[in-house]
Amino acid sequence: MPIITVKNLTKYYKIHQKEPGLWESLKSLVARKYYDVKAVDDISFEIEEGELIGFIGPNGAGKTTTLKVLSGLLYPTSGQISVLGFEPWKRDHKYLKQMSLVMGQKNQLWWDLPAQESFILNKEIYEVPDDQYKKVLNELVELLDVKDVLNIQVRKLSLGQRMKCELIAALLHSPKVLFLDEPTIGLDVVMQKAMRDFIAEYNKKYKATIILTSHYMEDVKKLAKRVVIIDHGKIIFDGKLKEIIDKYAEHKILTLEFSEEFPKERLEKFGEIDSWEYPRAVIKVPRLEASKRAAELLETLPVADINIEEPPIEAIIRRVFSGGKKQEAKSKKQ
């Protein structure tokens, strides 16, 4: 039985359109033109309990809109959504008590007070019993290592410390479903890793179902087994991260080291040269022929070392997006 079911979800925003210029501004006072923006356009997916899923896509792809619909903030234009058996937009308190939404660029902590005060307020809002509150708070504080900052005004914390406290505030009621929208945005590499480790740990320890959106492929690579790629409001891929590579990567990357110099042309016939700087060279070869080409290389050229790799996931995703656009352009022509 899936915990989250989304069927044919569509969300349009009404946008008020205005041409630049004073005359147009005056005109818009009288007659406003509106047009619909399809933020999410007919998407469907299911998520099982305890899954940790990564949503990726460029800015404005519809990731955040999807999370907002799932957390009950937005009313869907059409489609059926069920989370934990509830329709999110009704905002049943029984649902809200089991759910949490964290937005990397928004804060819920009271800016002028120590984080501790916001925690106590959340404890009361979610009606968490005293002993459970103490236990969970201690665990979270321990895991995130923020013991020393709980009594400092939130406005005086660093971004990293604040994000950690934001996470604690969002998790005090031990939500079964957690929506994380860009939780690592703006953080430095060390802090990103700390966040990532924490999310993984939390998912494992509490069996929480988590949807995560991020711009950073590293987040998704480290955390999510299953990835949903969204672009222009549509799901263009839903499956294991590894399957993206199988499906979309056309090349493998061969990194070579040579023991003798030789003319560049001799290497060119094996594949496309990415870089060439004796004694190192990097070439791209068609995926299926990778091992065959490598064998030939070893036979014909003075190879000292060879390494076969998949292309970086970022490059593949970029291809997925640009491919998507090309297809769209084609279908428009027809």
Binding site: G72, L73, R91, H93, L96, L101, K106, Q108, I125, Y126
Partner: peptide
């Protein structure tokens, strides 16, 4: 500002 979301996502 969209900060209403903080209230809407809670049992309040």
């Amino acid at each position: 500002s969209g900060d209403l979301s903080n209230i809407l996502t809670k049992p309040l």
